[in-house]
Nucleic acid binder design. Structure first.
Lengths: 153, 153
DNA sequence: TATTGTTATACTCTATAACTATA
DNA sequence: TATAGTTATAGAGTATAACAATA
């Protein structure tokens, strides 16, 4: 199936990349107001969803290299948002958990994400927003984008 | 209007950022096969659309800083894809034009973009692809994303 | 004095590879 | 020997600021 150039002059791939970069940048603005980088915010969410996971597991889920996790964990730990202690069953592993402050910040992060979606989709009706979401889910599934994070976010 | 967390577990903003990064990465793969970085490809397209424009004008259209244009123009010129010569009416300006080789490569670049769209949207029907495109155009307009390029592409 | 293009520099982000400690 | 985490280093990409030529 050949896809002609859309009348708008911009291809769907380009629009998607442009809007995606915009959404990521706006999200970065909002997390920065909470004192987090987007990557730190992503790791915080992941630990909230999977308490006790190892740094290696976090690296795999995020699609990052283990050495990158070290700096992120350091930053979150220094701010008192997570704890890192050795596993008793395998002393090579570090188990990551949220602190109370981490849980609290995670809650605020969820509000931020909700605000972000509302702002992004303000030009659409509720029905159109649902349609868009469903189409994007189909694309993400088709391209097997099952990671919890991605480059640039 | 409060937007609840979608049933899929991923917010629309996140999906958009993830798919956008995916589309940008796939596009980078394809342009690399043509010996171009995504930024160089974007500048080539821009010169094709606006022959004779100055580096300053290119910087404004792309949303980049003038010093960044220098390296891109150097690379394209070294490969014989564009020409750069001083304007006769204002010798501060450099006018950018495509060479024959540049025109030819631009044509191949358009095919690449077409392939990219087809691959990205393979999971959708033609009607759904049109719907998606229209919704994305509405969002881009609403957020005034009128630049010809963007960070990361 | 303002503007175009250029250069030099520094900064951010990330990956790679070598190292340690545990298994 | 294999794996988890760490450190040090290097590379890509980009912005900032000072500069020269022209208006």
């Amino acid at each position: 199936m050949a896809l002609p150039v859309p009348a708008s002059g911009k291809r769907t791939s380009f629009l998607l990349a442009q809007l995606g970069a915009h959404a990521a940048a706006r999200f970065a603005d909002r997390t920065q107001a909470l004192g987090l980088t987007p990557a730190e915010a992503g790791l915080l969410r992941l630990i909230g969803r999977s308490p006790g996971l190892s740094q290696r597991a976090a690296a795999d889920r995020i699609g990052a290299v283990p050495s990158r996790i070290v700096a992120l964990v350091d930053a979150l730990q220094d701010r008192g948002l997570i704890t890192r202690h050795r596993s008793r069953t395998d002393r090579r592993n570090h188990e990551l958990h949220l602190t109370g402050a981490g849980q609290e910040l995670l809650g605020r992060l969820r509000n931020v994400a909700e605000d972000q979606d509302a702002e992004l989709l303000a030009a659409l009706t509720a029905e159109e927003a649902r349609e868009l979401h469903e189409l994007l889910v189909r694309l993400a599934d088709h391209h097997q984008l099952d990671r919890d994070l991605h480059r640039g976010l």
